[in-house]
Design a binder for these strands. Structure first.
Lengths: 109, 109
DNA sequence: CCGATGCATCAATATCTGTTGATGCAAGCC
DNA sequence: GGCTTGCATCAACAGATATTGATGCATCGG
């Protein structure tokens, strides 16, 4: 009743899926200290350029990062609103788990 | 600096992965109103029994739910600690996104 | 205009994931 | 002891996902 739990399940699943990969989590971690171009990410991680491009595309599709072109470089950065949405959803899930403890219910006779 | 961001990336990825499926999100939603046996979940969702068993196994492997045998029924329930861990991780990600805005940094010349 | 750089995209492959139907197994009812 | 119920597990398949190397396409420097 307090918070909307998974108002849009498909959206929630997409959001969680985008963060269900270690490579992408590492990208997010690197972006947490600010905007980065792909070349720098490639350097920081031991990853092929096409691999990073793939994961960045996934993160972008989920709305977690945005890109900005500057000259020959493309800069990626986190989208705070999306991460806030994530935090809210996770918070709602936690709240529902706490509720579950108070409202016990019999099942199957 | 405030919160540890992905101290254990593999664990974080596993947690997010467990919630990256609509069927599993629906299970969590049903469990949020209390303990449920598989038979009841099967009834509430339009899902084959073996399908639910598969997803429950995934959720259990991630530590998000626990099971309890009672007679011929197996009751599943949410694990508040795991959902709190999730909420904390999501909160840390959000915090890092906010930090990213203040600490801009040049890249690639 | 030419070569180099930064990045996206494609093709091919390998692996993982989810679904279904069948089988197995334990617990309770008769 | 047989039968039924509730659930896990398996086998087989289909589809999604991740990795790699190659190619394409802009942008910039000369």
């Amino acid at each position: 009743m307090t918070t909307t739990l998974a108002a849009d399940p498909a959206r929630t699943a997409r959001l969680f899926h985008a963060l269900s990969d270690e490579t992408r989590l590492e990208i997010v971690r690197l972006l947490s200290s600010g905007e980065r171009c792909v070349c720098e990410l490639t350097g920081a991680m031991a990853a092929a350029q096409s691999r990073l491009s793939f994961h960045l595309k996934t993160l972008k599709a989920a709305g977690l990062v945005s890109d900005r072109r500057a000259g020959r470089w493309v800069f990626y950065s986190l989208v705070p609103a999306a991460l806030e949405e994530l935090a809210e959803t996770a918070g709602a899930l936690k709240a529902s788990a706490d509720e579950a403890w108070s409202s016990r219910k019999g099942c199957c006779g």
